[in-house]
Protein backbone atom coordinates (compact mmCIF):
# COMPACT_ATOMS: atom_id res chain seq x y z
CA UNK A 1 0.00 0.00 0.00
CA UNK A 2 1.24 3.48 -0.84
CA UNK A 3 -0.74 5.70 1.48
CA UNK A 4 0.24 5.71 5.14
CA UNK A 5 -2.36 4.28 7.46
CA UNK A 6 -3.76 6.99 9.75
CA UNK A 7 -3.18 6.39 13.45
CA UNK A 8 -6.62 7.62 14.36
CA UNK A 9 -9.87 8.23 12.50
CA UNK A 10 -10.43 11.64 10.90
CA UNK A 11 -12.07 13.91 13.45
CA UNK A 12 -13.88 16.98 12.20
CA UNK A 13 -13.75 19.00 15.43
CA UNK A 14 -10.05 18.29 15.96
CA UNK A 15 -9.40 19.41 12.39
CA UNK A 16 -11.34 22.64 12.89
CA UNK A 17 -9.46 23.41 16.12
CA UNK A 18 -6.11 22.76 14.46
CA UNK A 19 -6.95 25.01 11.51
CA UNK A 20 -8.17 27.77 13.85
CA UNK A 21 -4.95 27.70 15.87
CA UNK A 22 -2.88 27.69 12.70
CA UNK A 23 -4.64 30.72 11.21
CA UNK A 24 -4.44 32.60 14.53
CA UNK A 25 -0.68 31.98 14.65
CA UNK A 26 -0.34 33.25 11.08
CA UNK A 27 -2.39 36.39 11.85
CA UNK A 28 -0.27 37.13 14.93
CA UNK A 29 2.90 36.90 12.88
CA UNK A 30 1.51 39.17 10.15
CA UNK A 31 0.30 41.60 12.80
CA UNK A 32 3.69 42.02 14.45
CA UNK A 33 5.46 42.42 11.11
CA UNK A 34 3.09 45.10 9.84
CA UNK A 35 2.60 47.18 13.01
CA UNK A 36 3.21 50.90 12.65
CA UNK A 37 5.74 51.46 15.45
CA UNK A 38 6.25 55.18 14.67
CA UNK A 39 9.57 56.06 16.26
CA UNK A 40 9.06 53.80 19.22
CA UNK A 41 12.08 51.84 20.30
CA UNK A 42 10.75 48.54 21.53
CA UNK A 43 13.63 47.91 23.94
CA UNK A 44 13.28 51.30 25.56
CA UNK A 45 9.50 50.98 25.79
CA UNK A 46 9.78 47.67 27.62
CA UNK A 47 12.36 49.16 29.98
CA UNK A 48 10.15 52.16 30.76
CA UNK A 49 7.17 49.93 31.44
CA UNK A 50 9.34 48.00 33.84
CA UNK A 51 10.41 51.23 35.53
CA UNK A 52 6.82 52.36 35.96
CA UNK A 53 5.75 49.02 37.39
CA UNK A 54 8.80 49.13 39.66
CA UNK A 55 7.84 52.53 41.00
CA UNK A 56 4.29 51.37 41.48
CA UNK A 57 4.94 48.16 43.31
CA UNK A 58 8.38 48.51 44.90
CA UNK A 59 7.96 51.97 46.40
CA UNK A 60 4.32 52.11 47.43
CA UNK A 61 3.23 54.86 49.80
CA UNK A 62 0.03 56.43 51.07
CA UNK A 63 0.07 60.19 50.73
CA UNK A 64 -3.52 61.38 50.48
CA UNK A 65 -4.91 59.05 53.12
CA UNK A 66 -3.67 56.92 55.99
CA UNK A 67 -3.47 53.12 56.07
CA UNK A 68 -6.45 53.10 58.41
CA UNK A 69 -8.51 55.13 55.97
CA UNK A 70 -7.56 52.79 53.13
CA UNK A 71 -8.82 49.83 55.17
CA UNK A 72 -12.01 51.71 55.89
CA UNK A 73 -12.51 52.33 52.17
CA UNK A 74 -11.94 48.65 51.34
CA UNK A 75 -14.55 47.74 53.95
CA UNK A 76 -17.00 50.03 52.12
CA UNK A 77 -16.21 48.27 48.84
CA UNK A 78 -16.66 44.86 50.45
CA UNK A 79 -19.92 46.12 51.92
CA UNK A 80 -21.14 47.02 48.44
CA UNK A 81 -20.17 43.58 47.14
CA UNK A 82 -21.75 41.82 50.13
CA UNK A 83 -25.01 43.76 49.95
CA UNK A 84 -25.52 43.19 46.24
CA UNK A 85 -24.62 39.49 46.52
CA UNK A 86 -27.04 39.05 49.42
CA UNK A 87 -29.91 40.81 47.62
CA UNK A 88 -29.11 38.90 44.45
CA UNK A 89 -28.89 35.52 46.20
CA UNK A 90 -32.22 35.86 48.04
CA UNK A 91 -34.16 37.01 44.99
CA UNK A 92 -32.39 34.56 42.67
CA UNK A 93 -33.18 31.63 44.95
CA UNK A 94 -36.91 32.09 44.46
CA UNK A 95 -36.66 32.90 40.77
CA UNK A 96 -34.46 29.85 40.26
CA UNK A 97 -37.17 27.63 41.75
CA UNK A 98 -39.50 28.96 39.08
CA UNK A 99 -36.83 28.48 36.44
CA UNK A 100 -35.71 24.91 37.17
CA UNK A 101 -37.37 22.69 34.57
CA UNK A 102 -38.14 19.92 37.04
CA UNK A 103 -39.97 22.23 39.46
CA UNK A 104 -41.77 24.71 37.28
CA UNK A 105 -44.10 25.11 34.35
CA UNK A 106 -42.14 24.92 31.08
CA UNK A 107 -43.48 28.25 29.80
CA UNK A 108 -42.66 30.12 33.03
CA UNK A 109 -39.22 28.53 33.02
CA UNK A 110 -38.56 29.54 29.42
CA UNK A 111 -39.70 33.14 29.95
CA UNK A 112 -37.50 33.66 33.02
CA UNK A 113 -34.55 31.98 31.31
CA UNK A 114 -34.92 34.30 28.33
CA UNK A 115 -35.18 37.49 30.38
CA UNK A 116 -32.29 36.47 32.58
CA UNK A 117 -30.09 35.62 29.60
CA UNK A 118 -30.74 39.10 28.19
CA UNK A 119 -29.85 40.79 31.49
CA UNK A 120 -26.68 38.71 31.73
CA UNK A 121 -25.61 39.59 28.21
CA UNK A 122 -25.28 43.28 29.16
CA UNK A 123 -22.24 43.93 31.39
CA UNK A 124 -22.76 44.97 35.02
CA UNK A 125 -21.10 48.36 34.49
CA UNK A 126 -23.59 49.17 31.77
CA UNK A 127 -26.54 48.28 34.00
CA UNK A 128 -25.17 50.57 36.70
CA UNK A 129 -24.90 53.41 34.18
CA UNK A 130 -28.44 52.68 32.94
CA UNK A 131 -29.81 52.86 36.48
CA UNK A 132 -27.74 55.99 37.05
CA UNK A 133 -30.09 57.76 34.64
CA UNK A 134 -32.89 57.34 37.19
CA UNK A 135 -30.95 57.27 40.46
CA UNK A 136 -28.05 59.54 39.59
CA UNK A 137 -24.41 58.45 39.64
CA UNK A 138 -23.53 57.06 43.04
CA UNK A 139 -24.03 54.19 45.39
CA UNK A 140 -27.77 53.77 44.76
CA UNK A 141 -27.28 53.13 41.04
CA UNK A 142 -24.38 50.81 41.83
CA UNK A 143 -26.41 48.73 44.27
CA UNK A 144 -29.39 48.43 41.93
CA UNK A 145 -27.33 47.68 38.84
CA UNK A 146 -25.06 45.15 40.52
CA UNK A 147 -27.99 43.42 42.22
CA UNK A 148 -29.73 43.22 38.86
CA UNK A 149 -26.82 41.46 37.23
CA UNK A 150 -26.16 39.25 40.26
CA UNK A 151 -29.76 38.02 40.14
CA UNK A 152 -29.50 37.01 36.51
CA UNK A 153 -26.16 35.26 37.05
CA UNK A 154 -27.30 33.39 40.15
CA UNK A 155 -30.68 32.38 38.69
CA UNK A 156 -28.83 30.51 35.99
CA UNK A 157 -26.35 28.92 38.39
CA UNK A 158 -28.95 27.96 40.99
CA UNK A 159 -31.56 26.66 38.57
CA UNK A 160 -29.00 24.46 36.85
CA UNK A 161 -27.96 22.94 40.16
CA UNK A 162 -31.63 22.33 40.99
CA UNK A 163 -32.05 20.57 37.68
CA UNK A 164 -29.22 18.20 38.64
CA UNK A 165 -31.55 16.58 41.16
CA UNK A 166 -32.82 13.21 40.02
CA UNK A 167 -36.44 13.45 38.84
CA UNK A 168 -37.12 10.19 40.67
CA UNK A 169 -36.61 11.85 44.06
CA UNK A 170 -39.25 14.45 43.27
CA UNK A 171 -41.53 11.70 41.99
CA UNK A 172 -41.05 9.69 45.18
CA UNK A 173 -42.01 12.62 47.40
CA UNK A 174 -44.97 13.56 45.21
CA UNK A 175 -46.15 9.95 45.36
CA UNK A 176 -46.16 10.10 49.16
CA UNK A 177 -48.39 13.18 49.10
CA UNK A 178 -45.80 15.89 49.72
CA UNK A 179 -46.52 19.38 48.36
CA UNK A 180 -44.32 21.60 46.19
CA UNK A 181 -42.86 23.70 49.01
CA UNK A 182 -42.18 20.60 51.06
CA UNK A 183 -40.34 18.99 48.16
CA UNK A 184 -38.30 22.17 47.65
CA UNK A 185 -37.21 22.41 51.27
CA UNK A 186 -36.85 18.70 52.03
CA UNK A 187 -35.24 17.43 48.82
CA UNK A 188 -34.18 20.15 46.38
CA UNK A 189 -32.38 22.56 48.71
CA UNK A 190 -30.61 19.92 50.85
CA UNK A 191 -29.32 18.29 47.67
CA UNK A 192 -27.97 21.48 46.13
CA UNK A 193 -26.84 23.49 49.15
CA UNK A 194 -23.12 23.04 48.46
CA UNK A 195 -23.54 24.19 44.85
CA UNK A 196 -25.52 27.19 46.04
CA UNK A 197 -22.78 28.18 48.51
CA UNK A 198 -20.05 27.78 45.88
CA UNK A 199 -21.85 29.83 43.24
CA UNK A 200 -22.72 32.55 45.75
CA UNK A 201 -19.06 32.89 46.70
CA UNK A 202 -18.00 33.00 43.07
CA UNK A 203 -20.47 35.82 42.54
CA UNK A 204 -19.26 37.55 45.69
CA UNK A 205 -15.73 37.59 44.30
CA UNK A 206 -16.99 38.96 40.99
CA UNK A 207 -19.01 41.61 42.83
CA UNK A 208 -15.93 42.61 44.84
CA UNK A 209 -14.03 43.27 41.61
CA UNK A 210 -17.00 45.07 40.08
CA UNK A 211 -17.47 47.14 43.23
CA UNK A 212 -13.90 48.45 42.90
CA UNK A 213 -14.56 49.41 39.28
CA UNK A 214 -17.87 51.00 40.29
CA UNK A 215 -16.06 53.25 42.77
CA UNK A 216 -14.05 54.61 39.88
CA UNK A 217 -16.64 54.57 37.09
CA UNK A 218 -19.89 55.35 38.86
CA UNK A 219 -18.77 57.25 41.94
CA UNK A 220 -19.98 54.53 44.26
CA UNK A 221 -17.24 55.30 46.79
CA UNK A 222 -14.89 52.86 48.42
CA UNK A 223 -11.33 52.02 47.46
CA UNK A 224 -12.13 52.24 43.75
CA UNK A 225 -12.76 55.95 44.08
CA UNK A 226 -9.40 56.48 45.79
CA UNK A 227 -7.71 54.57 43.03
CA UNK A 228 -9.44 56.74 40.46
CA UNK A 229 -8.25 59.85 42.29
CA UNK A 230 -4.70 58.56 42.60
CA UNK A 231 -4.40 57.71 38.92
CA UNK A 232 -6.44 60.43 37.21
CA UNK A 233 -6.14 63.36 39.61
CA UNK A 234 -2.87 63.07 41.53
CA UNK A 235 -0.94 60.97 38.97
CA UNK A 236 0.60 59.18 41.95
CA UNK A 237 1.96 55.84 40.77
CA UNK A 238 3.18 54.90 44.24
CA UNK A 239 -0.24 55.36 45.73
CA UNK A 240 -1.80 53.14 43.05
CA UNK A 241 0.68 50.45 44.03
CA UNK A 242 -0.28 50.83 47.67
CA UNK A 243 -4.00 50.57 46.90
CA UNK A 244 -3.41 47.51 44.74
CA UNK A 245 -1.62 45.80 47.62
CA UNK A 246 -4.47 46.58 50.01
CA UNK A 247 -7.03 45.16 47.54
CA UNK A 248 -4.88 42.09 46.93
CA UNK A 249 -4.59 41.47 50.65
CA UNK A 250 -8.32 41.60 51.13
CA UNK A 251 -8.98 39.41 48.09
CA UNK A 252 -6.70 36.73 49.54
CA UNK A 253 -8.42 37.09 52.89
CA UNK A 254 -11.84 36.60 51.28
CA UNK A 255 -10.62 33.57 49.36
CA UNK A 256 -9.34 31.96 52.56
CA UNK A 257 -12.61 32.71 54.32
CA UNK A 258 -14.63 31.18 51.48
CA UNK A 259 -12.49 28.06 51.48
CA UNK A 260 -12.83 27.72 55.24
CA UNK A 261 -16.62 27.90 55.06
CA UNK A 262 -16.77 25.42 52.20
CA UNK A 263 -14.57 22.91 54.01
CA UNK A 264 -16.65 23.23 57.12
CA UNK A 265 -19.82 22.57 55.15
CA UNK A 266 -18.29 19.53 53.51
CA UNK A 267 -17.35 17.90 56.80
CA UNK A 268 -20.67 18.70 58.41
CA UNK A 269 -22.67 16.90 55.76
Amino acid sequence: MDAKLPAKPFNKSAFVIRMTLLSLAALTLVGFLTFDYKDLDLGEAVKKTGDTLGTMFLEPHAKHFTVGEAFQQVIITIGLAFLTTLFGAVIALFLALLTARNLSHPVVSLVIKGVVAFIRAVPTVLWVLIFAVAAGLGSVAAVIGMTFHSISYLVKAYSESFEELDDGVIEALRASGAGWWQIVFQAVLPSSVSYIISWTFVRFEINFAVAIAMGAAAGAGGIGYDMFMASNYYYDLREIGFITYVILGFAILLELLARGIKNKLRTNH
Binding site: D166, G168, V169, E171, A172, A187, P190, S191, V193, H269
Partner: peptide, 9 residues
Amino acid sequence: FQHYNLVNR
Protein backbone atom coordinates in the same frame (compact mmCIF):
# COMPACT_ATOMS: atom_id res chain seq x y z
CA PHE B 1 -38.69 2.46 43.09
CA GLN B 2 -35.95 0.69 41.17
CA HIS B 3 -33.45 3.46 41.84
CA TYR B 4 -34.67 3.95 45.46
CA ASN B 5 -35.12 7.71 44.84
CA LEU B 6 -33.77 8.84 48.20
CA VAL B 7 -32.29 12.24 48.95
CA ASN B 8 -28.68 11.06 49.11
CA ARG B 9 -27.32 13.98 51.08
